[in-house]
Amino acid sequence: MTMTNEPVDKTDATEPSTAGTKYADRLTRLSGQRWKQALDVQAPYRRNIQRLTLGKTLDVGCGIGRNLAYLSKESVGVDHNPHSIQVARDRGLDAYTTDEFFDNPQVAVKGGYDALLAAHLVEHMPLDQTVEIMESYLPFLKDGARCVFICPQEMGYKTDDTHVLFADFAVLQEVCGRLGLKFEYEYSFPFPRVVGKVFPYNEFVVVSRKG
């Protein structure tokens, strides 16, 4: 049998869900580990989000609000997992389930957002589903709004059984193209691309623009 360290595309498989209490609890547990708090391991990722200066952002797939907490105060988070949304709300963040967002005209404002962030979302679903979901949020972005996609590299991809699609730079550029977004630039964070094969927290970052 040939062994490989490359990620496997699992989009045809039945994978564990990101929708239940168990997944929300896992995110909370991982983010609250003492060593992570003591070392402030989120500091570089916090600065990475903040230096993008995205303005009022629609954080799609916000989870428990890890990135939402670093965005501008008027930003809004959306996630299909109501348990994750409750955790985000308990942290004082403005977060909504998918249904709540679309049913609330005060937050689902056409052209009301400066940017869209999809961080650690694309890898959880087949590509066609990503495009369908992202399309539904584009009307709420201003013309010229930036769209930022962040996904794990090889080692990070392997750490979560709910990851089904390895979304590298090429895949994320395809997402941008299918959505009619103008690709602007991409980078590996926080370390060079090669590090992603051994370091689980290295990320692909792709920045694009609407219109």
Rank of each mutant, 00 (worst) to 15 (best):
T2L: 13
M3D: 07
P7M: 03
V8E: 12
D12N: 15
T14S: 10
T18C: 01
G20Y: 04
G20K: 05
T21Y: 07
A24C: 05
A24K: 05
D25K: 13
R26Y: 13
R26M: 14
R26L: 14
L27W: 11
T28N: 08
L30G: 05
Q33L: 14
Q33N: 07
R34G: 04
R34K: 08
R34L: 15
K36P: 00
K36D: 06
A38L: 12
A38W: 14
A38E: 06
L39Y: 06
D40A: 13
V41W: 09
Q42N: 12
P44V: 13
Y45S: 14
I49K: 05
I49V: 07
I49T: 13
R51L: 13
R51T: 14
L52V: 07
L52S: 01
T53S: 15
T53F: 02
K56N: 09
G61I: 11
G61L: 06
C62Y: 10
N67W: 09
L68T: 01
L71D: 02
S72F: 01
V78K: 03
P82S: 03
Q86K: 01
Q86R: 07
Q86L: 06
V87T: 06
V87G: 00
A88Y: 00
R89E: 00
G92F: 05
A95C: 00
T97I: 04
D99K: 12
E100S: 05
E100I: 02
F101S: 03
F101A: 11
F102W: 02
Q106W: 03
V107G: 06
A108Q: 02
D114R: 04
L116F: 02
L116P: 10
L117A: 08
A118V: 11
A119D: 00
H120Q: 15
V122A: 15
M125H: 01
M125E: 06
P126V: 09
P126I: 10
L127Q: 08
Q129S: 14
T130E: 07
E132W: 02
M134L: 15
M134F: 13
M134R: 01
S136T: 13
Y137C: 02
L141R: 07
K142R: 07
D143N: 12
D143S: 15
D143H: 04
A145N: 07
A145I: 10
R146P: 03
I150V: 15
I150L: 10
I150G: 14
C151K: 03
P152K: 10
E154P: 15
M155R: 15
M155F: 08
G156I: 08
Y157M: 04
T159W: 01
T159D: 10
T159E: 13
D161T: 09
H163N: 12
V164T: 13
V164R: 09
F166Y: 15
F166H: 13
D168K: 01
V175K: 03
G177A: 14
R178P: 00
L181I: 11
K182I: 05
K182D: 10
F183I: 03
E184R: 14
E184S: 11
Y185R: 14
S188L: 10
V195K: 05
G196D: 00
K197I: 09
K197C: 05
K197M: 12
V198D: 04
F199K: 10
F199Q: 06
P200V: 09
N202Y: 00
E203H: 14
V205D: 04
R209W: 03
K210N: 00
G211Y: 09
